[in-house]
Design a protein around this nucleic acid. Structure first.
Length: 224
DNA sequence: GCATTAACCACAG
DNA sequence: CTGTGGTTAATGC
C-alpha cells in the first residue's frame, strides 16, 4: 500500500526529514485523492482546511480577476500547493484545478504546523521551496510586463517542452486559457501560433505542438 | 505624421 | 472553441 506515508516513494524533499514517528502521524492525518483532468482541487474564496501535496500530475493555479480568470502558474508534481493560502489566510486566495490526472494528498493543517515547529530540517526544506516559488513568480512578473506577446508565447512553449520533457506535446489549454496564462487575448495566441508555424518554428495541429526550431524559439523567448 | 503592436469586435467554420 | 479580417487606441520613431 503506497498510501502509507512511511513508504511513500514520492515523498517531498521536506518529508524526507520526518522521523518514523512523525510519518506515522502524517499517515493518520492525511488522505490521498485522485483527480481527473479538469477537476477542481480547491476553489478561491472557500475555507482552506488542508495543506495540499501534489504527488503526481499537473495542476494550474488561477485567480479570478475583474475581467478574466488569470492563470498564475502551472505546477508539476511533486510540489506542495496552498501553503501560502493556508497559513496566510483562512480563505483560499486562489483556485487549483487538475490539468492532467492527478494524485493529491490532503494533509491536516495542525499536524503540518507541528512538523514545522518541531522539525527544523523539514521547515528549512519548505522555506527553500517557498523561496523558489517566490523567485519564479518575480521572474514571471518581469517577463509578463516587459516581453512582447511572441516572447511570452515562446516562453510558454519552452515551459511546456521542459515540463513534459518532450519536444512534442499536447497543450493542456484552450486558446482562451493560453491567453489567460500569458496575459493576452485568445486571438493573439492564435495568430502568434500560426505565425510560428508558418516560420517553421513549430508544427501545429490543434493542440498538438512539436517544436522544430528550439534555438529560434529560445531567442524569441529571450529577446521578448 | 506614419508605423507598429495588440486589443476588441464580428463572423464563419 | 478557433481562426481570420477589419477597426481602433496607444506608443514609438
Amino acid at each position: 500500500m503506497d498510501t502509507l506515508c512511511d513508504c511513500c516513494n514520492i515523498k517531498s524533499s521536506a518529508a524526507k526529514f520526518l522521523s518514523k514517528k512523525e510519518l506515522e502521524k502524517l499517515n493518520n492525518n492525511c488522505v490521498q485523492v485522485t483527480f481527473l483532468a479538469g477537476e477542481i482541487i480547491f476553489k478561491q474564496d472557500a475555507f482552506s482546511s488542508n495543506i495540499i501535496y501534489v504527488k503526481e500530475g499537473l495542476v494550474k493555479i488561477h485567480i479570478k480577476g475583474p475581467h478574466n480568470d488569470q492563470i498564475i502558474k502551472i505546477t508539476k508534481a511533486p510540489s506542495y500547493l496552498g501553503i501560502p493560502t493556508t497559513f496566510g489566510n483562512k480563505i483560499n486566495q486562489y483556485s487549483a484545478t487538475a490539468i492532467s490526472n492527478t494524485r493529491i494528498c490532503f494533509i491536516d493543517n495542525e499536524v503540518f504546523k507541528q512538523f514545522i515547529i518541531n522539525n527544523g530540517e523539514f521547515a528549512y526544506e519548505l522555506v527553500i521551496e517557498l523561496c523558489h516559488n517566490e523567485l519564479n513568480s518575480f521572474q514571471r512578473c518581469v517577463n509578463r510586463t516587459q516581453k512582447h506577446i511572441n516572447g511570452r508565447i515562446a516562453d510558454a512553449l519552452m515551459f511546456f517542452k521542459n515540463t513534459f520533457e518532450n519536444n512534442e506535446f499536447i497543450l493542456p489549454f484552450t486558446r482562451l486559457e493560453f491567453g489567460n496564462f500569458v496575459d493576452t487575448s485568445r486571438e493573439s495566441v492564435s495568430r502568434i501560433l500560426t505565425e510560428f508555424k508558418n516560420d517553421g518554428i513549430i508544427n501545429l495541429d490543434g493542440k498538438k505542438v512539436k517544436i522544430l526550431n528550439e534555438k529560434l524559439l529560445e531567442t524569441i523567448s529571450k529577446k521578448g
